[in-house]
Design a protein around this nucleic acid. Structure first.
Lengths: 257, 257
DNA sequence: GCGATCAGCGGCACG
DNA sequence: CGTGCCGTTGATCGC
């Protein structure tokens, strides 16, 4: 019957496409279940399945950027279930053990597209880039500040920039490309304490970010850390540091003279 | 000429589709540039553009789950640039101000698909669910432990579960659905200290997770926190707590008798 | 709207 | 491999 034929035809196309490493698009009414790190069921509805050359599976609804169900680097099997009158596409993965089953009850569209190897995205304005820029001249942060090491690995975490100020105090610097949040502060606090107890030297902590929220600022002050407003601009080939506004922590307000 | 005609035809289809809220798929050779929170350029190559009903734009290559370029909730404009012989699709957003330009030099495929409103995914095994399960009977964690409040909001953070032990000590509990990492420990540490200094009472901190890494365990011990191995299983409608293995922090090894 | 956290986070880089 | 952390994080929920 025509109904089954469509699914059988689709199966052939899908098998071929997945095998070839092409980009595959399937659109139709489906039910999806997943079991693995978590579990989920997605009620029957029309969706798009996108299978890429690297065996990543993504089921998209008509909203949101991210797929509603997915699996990457999986091995696939396509089976025509004549009982359920469905074409079942399963993606399996171990480590962690996960499985996703897609039951297509009817298929509106199947096509695969030849797409050459991926090109590299040239991105600018990443934290890495800002960090590198800062490293080149830490004196914009504070006179006499000199960089010791980038990406200093601690036993429990990684410091963005390790430096030393003019008074030979150690300075732990954490760079954020966006508004500093509680997490940033907790990171810096943890790093600073590790360094202080490890080196037995007076140690300061500075967070560099374009802005910082009020609760984060309060936590920062409570921990005796410092904040430096870091303004930057992103243009064509790379980002550029625009301005730096030192704003020492008020240290519980003791500094008001 | 035929070349332009194809792009012109595509423009019509794309305009209509974006206006209608359908799911739109465009495949062709394109160059992409983005400027906003960061900036990027993607060299010419064949890709898929996916535009959803909620005006989310995603440019996919043939690898990876996530799009190489994207923008959500944008306003779009489609322009035929006869100078550059390209169809330019631009997505614009304010707050934050962002722009993405997609230059299609030729188009292999354009189609839009009617897809009804999204259905809800029923997910089980989330942290929220595990937390709720624990709340129902904290005694599995420790005899005499009683829950005080769920999602207790602090000035600087949110506590998963606030409880009290048999000795009337406050107990801050942080639940993780996967292996506890440094971040989890730093969170719990921060919460515990806030509670202790706020209430002026002896306060304990317990992290519940299926596993914990070695560095995280060390940090946990350094902070005087405790770890509880939380085993759970996910089956059909919901997750279920399988077992709990208490594993008190060794507190610098002082407990070895 | 901002704030905080989770996510089946994914992806990357380094040990 | 695991560990740590960034991400144009996105997505959710509460204030």
């Amino acid at each position: 019957m025509a109904f089954h034929m469509a699914l059988a035809e689709a199966k052939t196309k899908i098998d071929e496409s997945i095998n070839s490493g092409k980009m595959l698009i399937v659109i139709g009414e489906c039910f999806v279940q997943y079991q693995g790190r978590a579990g989920s069921k997605l009620p029957k509805g029309k969706r798009m399945l996108l299978v890429k050359g690297d065996k990543s599976f993504a089921i998209h609804q008509n909203t949101k950027l991210r797929p509603i169900n997915y699996m990457m680097n999986a091995s696939a099997s396509v089976v025509l279930d004549s009982e359920k009158k469905a074409l079942v596409i399963s993606a399996l993965k171990r480590k962690p053990k996960e499985k996703i089953d897609i039951f297509f009850y009817n298929i509106d569209f199947v096509e695969s597209f030849e797409i050459e190897g991926e090109k590299e995205l040239r991105l600018f304005g990443s934290e890495r880039e800002l960090s590198d820029l800062l490293m080149q001249d830490l004196s914009v942060l504070e006179k006499g500040l000199v960089a010791l090491k980038k990406e200093q690995i601690l036993r429990k975490g990684i410091i963005d920039i390790m430096a030393e100020d003019k008074d030979k105090n150690l300075v732990v610097i954490e760079v954020k490309r966006r508004r500093a949040d509680l997490n940033s502060i907790r990171q810096l606090h943890s790093y600073m304490h590790q360094v202080a107890s490890l080196k037995g030297r007076k140690t300061r902590g500075i967070i560099c970010a374009p802005s910082i929220g009020k609760p984060s600022m309060e936590l920062l002050e409570k921990y005796g850390l410092e904040y430096c407003k870091l303004d930057y601009e992103i243009h064509n080939p790379r980002a550029e540091i625009k301005g730096l506004e030192k704003k020492q922590s008020t240290l519980f307000g003791l500094e008001k003279k």
